[in-house]
Amino acid sequence: MAEFDDIIHQPLRLKIMAALNALPATAGLEFSRLKKLTGATDGNLGAHIETLAKAGYVAVEKAFVGKKPRTTVTTTAAGRVAFARHVATLQEIIAGAAR
């Protein structure tokens, strides 16, 4: 059994981080696209993005395109490191069980 980051481990936050980490470092995902990819509701997704932002793992940028508001979420450098460490921990747990 191993210990790791509770912030990333929550299922929806794990999906958010997985989605953002699948993109190049500078690229972000719009809220609507992130909602489709994770299958989350507006409120749930917003709350979990806020948790990740408070931890410094994601950056949220709000802008207006014409009259429409657009929210874009991007991983921070700290978020990428934390996610990589989390994935490594998961792999270690599986490898440890196979030994």
């Binding site: 059994m1 191993a2 210990e3 509770d6 747990i93 440890g96």
Partner: peptide, 12 residues
């Protein structure tokens, strides 16, 4: 901090 088993890790 949490602890998880290999099955949960594989699922994640």
């Amino acid at each position: 901090m949490s602890r998880i088993d290999p099955q949960q890790a594989a699922s994640a």
